[in-house]
Simulated assay, not measured.
Amino acid sequence: MTDTAAENEIVETDEQHLEPDAPAEPADEQTVDDDADTFPRAYVDKLRKEAADARVKAKDRDEIAARLHTSLVAASGRLADPSDLPFDEAHLSDPDALTAALDELLARKPHLASRRPVGDIGQGVSAVTSSVDLAGILRHNAN
């Protein structure tokens, strides 16, 4: 008999002598008081409704925060498209962080800058009108 055949015979003999597993008995028979761990149905329903309302408010809050962020970026007037700056909650409470993020983005990607001219460019309606008052000049020089 070869070694492999002898090993197979030993394994078969060992399997025949093994007894089937007895049903497992619980190690510790503690009785669980189901009433102590459960809550009234109305209370559970109330908690679930409160949790659902909190999730809806949190979702609304995230949407409103994103809209506020976009509005703050648009109000700065530095980007052609305010959605180019990714949302960061730190920008909402810290104007310096928003300015720094805009500076960094425009340094990396100057093509995102707004092309709209700002300030006095010499066109359009001007609030300051200067007229020459010759009589005022003569009076001023006469003194």
Rank of each mutant, 00 (worst) to 15 (best):
L105S: 04
V32N: 04
F39I: 06
S126G: 10
D62Q: 13
A66H: 14
R67E: 15
A113M: 08
G122K: 07
R116Y: 03
F87G: 01
R55M: 02
D35I: 04
D60T: 08
I64P: 00
R139W: 06
L138K: 11
T38W: 04
L72R: 10
I137K: 09
S83P: 00
R139A: 14
R48E: 14
T99S: 14
A65W: 05
P40D: 15
A100L: 02
D84T: 02
A135G: 06
T99E: 14
H140E: 10
D103W: 07
A36Y: 00
A97G: 01
A51I: 10
F87N: 01
K109C: 02
D62F: 09
A113C: 08
I121H: 15
L47F: 02
Q123Y: 12
S131G: 06
K59V: 03
K46I: 00
I121P: 00
S114T: 13
V132H: 13
E104S: 12
V132N: 06
D60W: 04
S76F: 03
Y43E: 11
L85R: 01
D94E: 09
R78Q: 11
S83E: 13
A127M: 03
A42H: 09
R67H: 10
G77R: 07
P82T: 11
D60E: 15
D120Q: 08
T70F: 01
H69R: 06
V118L: 09
A90H: 13
V56P: 00
V56N: 06
A58G: 03
L72S: 07
A66P: 00
R115H: 07
T99M: 07
Y43I: 04
L138C: 04
R61M: 05
H111N: 10
A135W: 02
R55N: 05
L68R: 15
V32L: 12
T70R: 13
R67P: 00
E63K: 13
G136E: 13
R41I: 03
I137M: 06
D81L: 04
F39T: 07
Y43N: 05
G119H: 07
D96A: 12
D34F: 12
V44K: 14
S126Q: 14
K109S: 12
K46R: 13
I137H: 08
R78A: 09
E89Q: 14
G77K: 04
V132P: 00
E63R: 11
H91D: 11
K109E: 14
A42K: 11
S126V: 08
T99G: 06
